[in-house]
Design a binder for these strands. Structure first.
Lengths: 146, 146
DNA sequence: AGCTTGTTCAAGAATAATTCCAATTTTCAT
DNA sequence: ATGAAAATTGGAATTATTCTTGAACAAGCT
């Protein structure tokens, strides 16, 4: 396969940064990242794979996984897990949880009320160092007509 | 294999209930459940499998999965997920989260401070129905000598 | 006790998400 | 431009879990 070269070096948009927080920004990583910024519906790796093919027809699923992992490790995006389902990915870096609406199957970001810190409401030994928090809710959002 | 019969009907302890919340209590389910009650270190299905073999040498991993699923569905135990690791199982039915200590690899139950309801501290549309909550933290517990 | 019907169990095959691997290609610094 | 290091690719491999099938079992009835 020879046309991969042309795909990878082709027309990298001028707004594509050389790197994000120390991560070398390749064409593939950039397109994956941009897609997540533009479509904030918490896609799975496979969703990203199918969508990003529009722009990078030759990208492989393994590369999508690699890109997502790199972006997560460099803090550019977050990985979200619901039960044992496929991981989903989210460019919202603020501290927030996720609400899974059973009715529509959609996932929504949920923030704390102003001034609330999770560490303040949990019973933890003093001196505990929290490096990562994950909050997931399942339920039903109110219907418009109720 | 014929000795399954003898194993299954053998000496069901007199304190084994006929059922738990509508779930027919078989020897296998009972041993799995009892093990979880006695060893509250959040074992995986495979951990349970290896441990329960002491009492039921012929039990299969599939049966352990079946038992755990049945117990979860009938509300007797909870299934806990950390990232994409194997599910872990927990007999603590009170609302609580889980703290994963990076230093020791152990998992600890975390409760809310008295009077706190998670729904009170989150920004959710009024009328939202929450059916399930999962809170997981990762970090380091303070050392004894610090 | 024996029959019937629905449930559970065991063993292994199958599945799905993810990771690994080796070869090629790209990137970046020189 | 060149070479070393890093990234990409496609496919194979892995892992946790679920599915499948037939045998064993339990419960209710006669």
């Amino acid at each position: 396969m020879v046309n991969q070269a042309s795909e990878s070096t082709q027309e990298s948009p001028s707004d594509m940064p050389a790197e994000i927080s120390g991560l070398r920004m390749t064409r593939q990583r950039w397109e994956v990242y941009r897609l997540l910024l533009e479509q904030r519906d918490h896609p799975t790796a496979n969703d990203v794979f199918m969508r990003v093919k529009d722009r990078l027809p030759n990208i492989s699923l393994a590369t999508v996984y690699n890109c997502l992992e790199a972006l997560v490790q460099h803090g550019a995006i977050r990985q979200v897990n619901f039960e044992r389902e496929s991981s989903r990915f989210c460019p919202n870096l603020e501290e927030h949880g996720h609400f899974h609406d059973k009715r529509s199957g959609t996932i929504h970001d949920v923030t704390f009320k102003p001034g609330v810190q999770l560490a303040d409401v949990l019973e933890l030994p003093p001196g505990t160092l929290i490096t990562d928090i994950e909050i997931t809710l399942r339920g039903e959002l109110p219907t418009a007509h109720s």
